[in-house]
């Protein structure tokens, strides 16, 4: 017994090192599996607060660009609204009658990264603003990512520039679907894989979200086809997609809630019997 205690005392630095190294490996492996990175994420109170203060200072330098983006979006929405030929005088807005499938909330990005292989964003809305896990995050130009963790006031968002991200996407002109992934090489491009080789692809085609998942609405813009080739299996295309969003510069975002998600999921869930 004495010898065991002596051994522990003599090698205590090595034992502490082994323990802590094991702990950090555990956290690393946890963070590599989807929806298991519960313990360490930047949407907690302390880190969220620090980023909030820093963002409060930093956002003033970006106001001109933010205003331009908002103006551009307003112009687009106005041109849609005034060309719709609606009877704008007699529209009755009744919140009970509106049977909308998606609810949008605005949020601001506090922290954005794009140089690692697993990138996350932190936004300034959390549980208190009814943001929940698996809500989609988009901007006026295209998709950004999926909410992965929430705290009281902040949420962390799994960016599409993340090797663990896999988003259902399709060609805009036909219904050929694939998955949007990222090969870590450039923040400007993502890759669309598993898209059938019978799809009529052309450079410049628009890629949009597929609407097969319950996260994003169908038809949210993603990017354009930059180049494509047949994958090693020979049955599918691998498409290099140039993203519409400049992922290195994201200020305001919209969080999308699919109000019918639970209904769709309960329908799709395989029966136990």
């Amino acid at each position: 017994m004495q010898q065991i205690i002596n051994f522990v005392l003599r090698n205590k630095t090595f034992l502490v090192f082994l323990l802590l190294f094991g702990l950090s490996l555990f956290f690393t492996i946890q963070s590599h599996s989807y929806h298991k990175s519960k313990y360490i994420h930047s949407s907690n109170l302390v880190t969220g607060g620090v980023y909030q203060v820093a963002n409060g200072i930093g956002q003033y330098f970006n106001l001109t660009n933010e205003n331009k983006a908002l103006l551009e979006e307003n112009r687009m929405l106005k041109s849609i609204v005034y060309n719709l030929d609606l009877d704008t005088v007699n529209i009755q807005i009744d919140s009970i009658k509106l049977d909308s499938a998606y609810k949008f909330r605005t949020a601001q990005v506090f922290k954005n990264s794009y140089s690692h292989s697993t990138n996350y964003l932190t936004i300034n809305k959390g549980k208190r603003d009814s943001i929940k896990i698996d809500y989609g995050v988009i901007t006026s130009k295209g998709i950004v990512g999926i909410v992965e963790n929430t705290s009281q006031n902040f949420s962390s968002v799994l960016s599409i520039l993340n090797t663990r991200s896999r988003i259902n996407a399709q060609l805009k002109k036909t219904n050929h679907i694939g998955s949007l992934v990222w090969n870590t090489e450039s923040a400007e491009f993502a890759q669309l894989i598993d898209i059938s080789k019978f799809a009529p692809l052309a450079i410049g085609d628009t890629i949009v979200t597929g609407g097969q998942s319950t996260i994003f609405p169908k038809g949210v813009l993603i990017g354009t086809v930059n180049s494509y080739k047949i994958d090693s299996g020979g049955d599918n295309y691998v498409v290099n997609v140039k993203l519409f969003n400049d992922m290195t510069n994201i200020g305001h975002v919209y969080v999308v809630e699919n109000l019918q998600a639970t209904e769709i999921k309960s329908l799709q869930k395989p029966k136990d019997d």
Partner: peptide
């Protein structure tokens, strides 16, 4: 060694990277 772990861990929390900084710092 313990302080080094704490240091790496703090940077990890801020940059959403699991435990990679902590592991490197401890080593």
């Amino acid at each position: 060694v313990f302080l080094a772990f704490l240091l790496g861990f703090c940077v990890d929390i801020f940059s959403d990277s699991g435990g990679v900084h902590a592991a490197a710092c401890v080593t």
